[in-house]
């Protein structure tokens, strides 16, 4: 169960991430994303272990000390899992710039010019 104060924070993060106004970074784990704040940081992670799927979040203060860290397994805690997974997806999409890439490709496809490059043009030397 996520406490109300953390839920409020996560709600705001989801909202702002969907608006592309959060700079998510990738951490030293392939599936973990984090964001720095003036007085701390927030990480969100999604991973599989022994065929179970998990999602977790950690909030740290300005000294890097953990304030809260909660993990939810998909099977045993589907409601909290899905809620936090929404943030995870928003963070991931924001980091890999899914929407920006798709809209840029669509714009390119809408133009009259030929898209793509010949193999010999790919390298600048």
């Amino acid at each position: 169960m996520i406490e109300k104060k953390y839920r409020d924070l996560i709600d705001k993060l989801i909202q702002k991430s969907l608006m592309k106004k959060v700079s998510w970074n990738k951490s030293s784990r392939e599936t973990e994303y984090y964001v720095h704040f003036k007085k701390g940081s927030f990480t969100v992670d999604n991973w599989v272990n022994d065929s179970s799927v998990y999602v977790d979040f950690t909030l740290r203060n300005a000294n890097g000390i953990e304030i809260v860290s909660q993990t939810f397994e998909k099977e045993s805690n589907p409601e909290e899992f899905n809620y936090l997974f929404k943030l995870y997806k928003a963070a991931e999409e924001s980091y890999i710039k899914v929407d920006e890439t798709i809209s840029s490709i669509i714009n390119e496809l809408d133009e009259e010019d030929t898209v793509g490059k010949d193999e010999e043009d790919v390298l600048p030397f």
């Binding site: 951490s27 030293s28 973990e32 984090y34 720095h36 003036k38 007085k39 701390g40 940081s41 990480t43 950690t58 740290r60 300005a62 000294n63 890097g64 000390i65 953990e66």
Partner: peptide, 12 residues
């Protein structure tokens, strides 16, 4: 502050 947080994330 960022450096301290990054170190914490990496050690965790």
């Amino acid at each position: 502050v960022d450096a301290l947080n990054e170190l914490s994330i990496h050690s965790a």
